[in-house]
Simulated scan of single mutants.
Amino acid sequence: EHQKDLEVLEENKISLKRRCECVAEGSDARSRTLFNNIYTDLYIIEGQSEEVNTQHEVKKLEAASKIQNLHGSPIRCHDIFKALPDQYAAIRVVLTNGVAGVGKTFSVQKFTLDWAQGLENQDVSAVVLFSFRELNLIRDQQHSLLTLLHVFHPNLQKLPAEKLAVWKLLFIFDGLDESRPFLDFSNSRLVSDITQKSSINVLLINLIKGNLLPSALVWITSRPAAANQIPPSCPIQLGVGQHV
C-alpha cells in the first residue's frame, strides 16, 4: 500500500513538471519555450508596507524596484515557508503580494517546477496548484476539498482520503485578485471535514484558518488591491518587488 501511495505522489510530480516546464511566448499559444530559459529571480521581502497597498498600481511598478531599500535581505521563492532567524513558529500560510506583471505566477511556477524536478522542498509530499481563474469556472458548484482535488488533480484520486492528513501537502492559489466572489472571513461557516461540501471560497477560508487539513501549507498570490481580503492575523505576508 505504501508503494502505491508513493507512485501516486510521483505521478503528481510528473504531471506538474509537464505543466510548468514550458511557457507560451507572445500571443501564439503554440510557441513554447523552456521556462528555465526565461525565468528571472524575484526580489521578495518579508512584511507589508502600507504604501504598497494604498498607491495606485501603475505607480507601484516604479516603487517595486526601490523596495529593497525599505526592508532586509531578499528571500528566495523556494524559502518562503522557512522560518527567518528571528522567527520560532513554523510558517504555514504565505500571501505573496505584488503588482500586476511583477512575476508572482512565475515564482509559483519556479517553486513548483524545482520541486517536481527533485531540486527543492523535498519535504513536501504533494503540490496542489490552482489558479483563481480556473476556480471561477466552478464557483457556483458545491465541492468538498476532496472533490476539488479530484477535479483539478485527477492523479490524486488514487490517494486515500485519510492519507491527506498524513502527507505534507502544499496548496497554491494563484491570483486572488481574480477571485469571484471575494473572500468573506467574517461570515464564513466552519468546515473541518475534507468530505464536507461547501462553496469554493468557504473551503479556501477554512484552509487558511487551519480548520481544514491544519498540517497543510497554503500559498496565495494577489495584487495589492485584493490582498486586504485576508485578515492580517491569518498569514505571514510577503511583499514582492522586481529583481534588480
Rank of each mutant, 00 (worst) to 15 (best):
G72F: 04
V166T: 12
I91A: 05
G210Q: 00
K66H: 05
T147N: 10
I208R: 14
F81V: 07
W115H: 01
D123Q: 12
L203R: 05
T40N: 10
G118W: 00
K163W: 11
E46W: 09
Q141S: 11
W167L: 08
A89W: 06
R180W: 15
S222W: 01
R18A: 04
D174R: 06
S125M: 05
P232D: 09
I205R: 03
R139M: 11
V93L: 08
V127H: 03
H143R: 03
H56M: 09
L129Y: 15
A226C: 01
K4A: 15
L70P: 09
N206P: 07
E50A: 08
E1N: 15
Q55V: 07
C77G: 09
L148E: 03
E178H: 14
P74A: 04
S131I: 08
L146N: 10
K168A: 07
Y43L: 11
Q68E: 08
V191Y: 08
N187Y: 11
C234M: 14
G118N: 03
L135A: 02
T40L: 10
S131K: 10
L207Q: 03
Q55A: 09
V102Y: 05
G239H: 13
A227Q: 13
L42C: 11
E25C: 14
L148I: 01
L156F: 00
I91D: 06
I172E: 02
V191Q: 04
I220K: 03
S27K: 14
I220F: 11
I138N: 15
T147V: 12
K82A: 13
K60Y: 06
K82F: 15
L9M: 00
T195S: 12
L169C: 05
S73V: 07
I80Q: 06
L207E: 00
V94D: 00
S192M: 12
K60L: 09
A100I: 11
N36V: 06
T96C: 13
N211K: 04
A227L: 02
F130T: 12
A225D: 12
P85S: 02
F111R: 06
F106N: 07
I44C: 00
K66N: 06
Q48M: 09
N53Y: 06
S179G: 10
K82T: 10
H2A: 10
D174F: 06
L61D: 11
V218E: 05
E50L: 09
G98V: 03
I194P: 15
L203F: 04
R92Q: 11
K17P: 09
L84G: 13
E10P: 10
S215W: 06
E25V: 11
E21L: 08
S15G: 02
Q109Y: 08
S199W: 00
L6H: 13
V52K: 07
T33E: 14
E1V: 08
E178M: 10
H71Q: 13
F130R: 07
F35Q: 02
W219I: 00
